[in-house]
Design a protein around this nucleic acid. Structure first.
Lengths: 159, 159
DNA sequence: ATTAAATATATGATAAATCATGTTTTCATG
DNA sequence: CATGAAAACATGATTTATCATATATTTAAT
């Protein structure tokens, strides 16, 4: 008589969160990132640190504010991440000449080596995630996400 | 002579994070959720609390583990969120008969009223986000995200 | 030049999230 | 039944993240 209580225990109507874009984005993001989390941790990084490194990967030094923008991590948080990462020798802070308010962050050779080692693994993981969807649908997904980001990105600021 | 240092300060080649799905998902998710964050806060919730409420919205009571699964928040974190939310009268814990290990969580009438007030705002916000893409592309995006979630969802567990 | 506002980063205080583990209850097996 | 493993949740200790604000520097206006 009470077989309604099956695995999902939902009612007939679709759940709000199953059709609500921010919830879908959050769940997908957290599931996927969480998988690579394991690899990242095994290499001695938190996910946030990895996100910062990935942002710096293959690029010229960039300001702390810009890192905060790219990673969508608050500036004050980035500042603390960088303390750890600098102590670990993965990045270094440089003065920007011309504007001494700005601190540029450069990836060190050691950090670069680590990233070079992780990026192929990240790509493999990404491949595995995208494989079921085929190239075209994968590109559509990325393209849509890029548009969303572009439309909602804000100028470099805290709070 | 140094006009290379324009706004984005990137090199010729595309940045890794601009073509890396997990990074795109994370950035899109954080930007979009961050916008609604304001509304959520104005109503006295943290984003996590809102995510839990949204998971419960219009549904029968569900276990704490299941909430953790849907929200991709760790079980121990959900437990603490529920303490706050229960104290605030938005949800209540119930014993499940038949298995006393399980604690079911139900949304209270008060919580339900709050959610009913927030969901339309959430939908509006979602509309604004999706509007530039048109119905079809929006549905494709959601559908792809749902597939990703389905493929990567794991059984109810901690750690 | 001086001063006020704005910008970029850092930091103390606090809140939130997570880890590791404990408790309780159920399940499976001899 | 008794016992050990497993499942679900709670909780102390710790780590991360964030808020609020301070410091330093630059920019703009007088």
């Amino acid at each position: 008589m009470h077989n309604k209580d099956m695995q999902t225990s939902r009612t007939d109507s679709a759940r709000f969160v199953d059709d609500y874009l921010p919830a879908l984005l959050a769940q997908a993001s957290r599931l996927i990132s969480g998988e690579f989390h394991l690899v990242v941790n095994a290499n001695g990084f938190t996910v946030s640190e990895w996100r910062v490194l990935a942002a710096l990967a293959g690029n010229e030094p960039m300001s702390i504010g810009r890192i905060a923008q790219i990673t969508t991590i608050k500036q004050s948080t980035v500042s603390r991440l960088l303390d750890r990462m600098e102590a670990a020798g993965h990045v270094e802070r440089l003065d920007k000449d011309g504007d001494r308010r700005i601190t540029l962050v450069a990836i060190t050779p050691a950090g670069s080596r680590t990233v070079s080692r992780l990026i192929p693994l990240a790509r493999e993981h990404e491949q595995r995630v995208l494989e079921p969807f085929g190239l075209q649908r994968a590109e559509e997904l990325k393209s849509t996400l890029r548009s969303i980001i572009e439309l909602h990105e804000t100028p470099v600021l805290d709070t």
